[in-house]
């Protein structure tokens, strides 16, 4: 009897082909979609990226942060500071912001990793508040009321408004694909194996020689850098920043958490489904303002209590489907064996 351990299934191979086709279609959007639709899709990609990163942090590394707005805001402010104060072209300022975010995350992690479990979560929020209040003190960037990206900086990005919108769209699409690809690669790497071992049993993982602190540190710094980069991209689209907008806990953390929880925490598919559900709800209910937010909160609580694996967890429990082949499966076995070794 021949056995083969593989990760991919026929479904995941099919999903890959379909995914490629969708990707080509999406990349061509500037030729078929209107400006408003493209803006919406760009926003969807950026939220998808934020959700994937938060999921990596909370769902895989067990670092439940409610302060990722610290890095979104930092990215936005880094973009404005680099372009306005240092004269760096906007396209260069975006990766530089990401680098800066990762650098800033190093001392931040050293500090807040001293807080355990749930207290870590609130510690991340304190950091975000410190950043927000700090940004309000920077009078060169408008202090508490914020500032706009100067017209010449915006104009220098691309020739004409259509070209700029297409560029922002492609950047958002590219970042989303890169973030998902990176998350996928991390989870299949040694680091990913360490994360899954940690998630299943921290004590056992430690006895296997996994350095918990370093593993979590790497994930924290990497997600912080990428979140900062996404923050810069978000404010390239928005063209205006203020401390309250940049460091908004609702916009950059609450929505992201709801997306991941509703879609399915701890899976790569979850944030994708969650993002689609979130935007479907938002586009139909956005006029209802705070009622919409209340509904979102209720849905998230119900999902957490009744179906903690989220929508994707429900789908997977029914069908065993896996679009991103991360878990290992044994191929070629013709008989199943029960736990006590008897042939079933």
């Amino acid at each position: 009897m021949s056995q083969r351990v593989t990760r991919s299934s026929r479904l995941s191979q099919g999903a890959a082909v379909l995914g490629l086709l969708v990707l080509i279609l999406l990349a061509a959007a500037p030729w078929w979609a209107g400006r408003a639709d493209m803006r919406l899709m760009g926003e969807i990609f950026l939220y998808l990226s934020l959700a994937t990163l938060w999921n990596l942090l909370a769902g895989y590394a067990g670092l439940v942060s409610v302060g990722q707005q610290a890095y979104v805001g930092l990215g936005g402010y880094a973009l404005f500071a680099l372009t306005i104060l240092a004269g760096v072209p906007a396209l260069w300022a975006i990766p530089l912001a990401g680098l800066l975010g990762a650098l800033v995350a190093v001392p931040v992690a050293a500090l807040i990793f001293r807080l355990r479990g749930a207290y870590f979560a609130i510690g991340t929020w304190v950091i975000a508040e410190v950043f927000r209040l700090g940004a309000a003190q920077v009078s060169a960037l408008g202090g508490g009321s914020g500032t706009s990206l100067p017209a010449d900086v915006v104009r220098a990005m691309a020739s004409g408004r259509d070209a700029r919108e297409a560029l922002a769209y492609w950047l958002a699409l590219g970042v989303a694909m890169a973030v998902i690809g990176l998350a996928f690669a991390i989870l299949r790497s040694r680091l990913g194996l360490a994360l899954m071992a940690l998630r299943d049993n921290e004590l056992a993982a430690r006895s296997l020689g996994i350095n918990i602190w370093r593993t979590k540190f790497i994930v924290y710094v990497a997600t912080a850098g990428l979140t900062t980069l996404i923050g810069a991209l978000i404010f390239v689209q928005k063209l205006r920043i203020s401390p309250d907008a940049g460091f908004s806990v609702n916009d950059w953390t609450a929505f992201v958490i709801f997306i991941v929880v509703i879609g399915g925490i701890g899976t790569l598919e979850g944030p994708i489904i969650g993002t689609l559900v979130f935007f479907a709800l938002r586009e139909t209910m956005a006029d209802m303002g705070s009622v919409y937010l209340i509904a979102l909160g209720v849905v998230a609580i119900v999902v957490m209590l009744r179906a903690p694996a989220g929508i994707w967890g429900l789908i997977r429990a029914r069908t065993g489907a896996e679009l991103f082949p991360i878990s290992h499966r044994v191929r070629g076995t013709t008989t199943k064996e029960t736990a006590d070794g008897k042939k079933a």
Binding site: N250, F258, V261, L293, I294, G297, I301, M304, L305
Partner: peptide, 10 residues
């Protein structure tokens, strides 16, 4: 954490 976060928003 997530349920109380949801409660907070509600």
């Amino acid at each position: 954490l997530l349920v109380t976060f949801g409660l907070s928003v509600i």
